[in-house]
Design a protein around this nucleic acid. Structure first.
Lengths: 275, 275
DNA sequence: TACTATCTGGTACAGCGTACGAGAGGTGCG
DNA sequence: CGCACCTCTCGTACGCTGTACCAGATAGTA
């Protein structure tokens, strides 16, 4: 049963209960469902948790993190705002549900025997998923990470190292390290993306002359201090480290470095010219 | 002049101007200061940007990200809420200023000639700084990153690779990759920390028996599915990958892997048993 | 004295998350 | 049938947020 697995929220972590309902909804969720079957829903369930989460993700994708308000989501569903609170304990919980839902977006590959390729695939998939939902980076800060979909992904990841004779500790360190790198990379990339769109908006309001003047003044000021030789060189070379074209290769570069280091450590010889 | 460097905000990026003042405060800040010297502040400046930023950081450190509200900060300074808005265009700008301010907390080491050690030091310093201000992770999501302090740090970082004959592109990729890893690591660690404190609070409300029952039921459910052999092994081994003791070594592990990969790539032979 | 620039902060408003509780619709029992 | 009881919807209201607007205080210049 697929639905069986979907409820594997780590106890305590899932919701911050503000009232009794949290416990009912989470820790004793199965029990709830049993009762619901005795007493089936009467009105063909106009609203459901999954619907609410889906609507919230739609809104977030289309209008950004700021647009995710309970009122906005309710409007999307033609429901009263407070109706959402029957299915969801708090906005905080809804965000958790959203994060876990998109975690399952991409399929993680079956172990192929080549751990390095599998890990690369997963890393790229994670990155792709995060890029499709950039609002994740707004919500992810400092919130307990584990929902059932994440659990499944961790399980898969650990499976890639099965035949290599690693102890569990090593396998876990490697998994989290890769995940760590991907998170950091996407965080940076989302920041850069936001910078760009913001800059473009601002630039559009200026004339060409003003634009050059402002930029010129800035580079001149950097140069004038004499304390930033590398940055000055960078700017005069016109090299933009954050340009979209370089982003993919930068991601792959870091990932390759990391995987090389890991490979060396687990006794695998790094594939010399991989990628 | 130290103060000279402090104003090197990348133009456009710094503030999202909601009205004209943004431009004045940022792009033409120097001009503003010149005028201010003609017309010096009359009341011995009861309030200043730096004070406001410092107060905001204090509040954030002591009470967490949620406590950072304009009213709270004003109260801290015995000022009216709206007085802050003379010195700061918006809360958003204040957050940018806070982030950049803590960026300069730790001193980055002078280049020692051993790039690897320098980079390690910087990475550890970044991590330490982020841990002292865990609210950073709440604010950092999807916001333009560059203030003057960050610029200085990038400059320093680039300097570590000076004698190695790398081209600029390589040096930049390496710098950002290391930064990326650190950000990701701290993001994860802050999440884990929050999970823990939350779990402790919840656990404190339960009796020992309830606690074991809930945990036991969960592990039983995970095992019952048969789809999570690695996780089941993990849980029955009682190994907690997020335990505080393992966190430092995990960070160093990932960092070492990364640096090994980088070293190999720039023709340096990895120090075999480093740390 | 009058004028102007700089800075303070009170009031007010729209929008947020959500506590509360009334009520609508359905089931099961007498 | 009536009646109790659960499941679910949602209007109202409250306290909180960021901040627009504007009236004033203060100090330097003319």
């Amino acid at each position: 049963m697929d639905a069986e697995d979907e409820d594997l929220w780590v106890p305590f972590l899932a919701a911050r209960p503000r009232d009794r309902r949290a416990e009912r909804l989470r820790v004793h969720l199965r029990e709830d469902e049993r009762r619901a079957q005795r007493h089936p829903p009467r009105r063909a369930a106009a609203l459901s948790r999954d619907q609410i989460v889906a609507a919230a993700i739609m809104v977030a994708d289309a209008e950004g993190a700021d647009a995710v308000t309970m009122r906005r989501i309710a409007r999307e569903l033609n429901a009263g705002t407070m109706s959402l609170y029957w299915h969801v304990v708090s906005k905080e919980e809804l965000l958790d549900l959203m994060l876990d839902a998109v975690q399952g977006d991409r399929e993680t590959p079956e172990p192929s025997g080549d751990w390095r390729r599998d890990v690369q695939d997963v890393a790229r998939a994670m990155r792709g998923s995060l890029h499709e939902h950039p609002w994740m980076m707004d919500f992810i800060g400092g919130r307990p990470p584990v929902g059932p979909k994440s659990l499944r992904n961790v399980e898969r990841m650990l499976g890639y190292f099965d035949g290599l004779g690693l102890d569990m500790r090593m396998a876990i360190d490697i998994s989290t390290t890769v995940g760590t790198y991907v998170m950091g990379a996407v965080l940076r990339e989302v920041q850069e993306h936001n910078s760009e769109t913001f800059m473009e908006q601002t630039l559009a309001e200026l004339t060409e002359a003003e634009r050059e003047k402002v930029i010129g003044e800035f580079t001149e000021r950097v140069r004038a201090t004499g304390r930033y030789p590398h940055l000055a060189e960078l700017m005069s070379a016109g090299y933009d480290p954050d340009a979209a074209e370089t982003r993919d290769s930068r991601f792959e570069f870091g990932l390759d470095c990391l995987l090389d280091g890991i490979a060396a450590r687990i006794g695998d010889h790094p594939s010399p010219g991989s990628r």
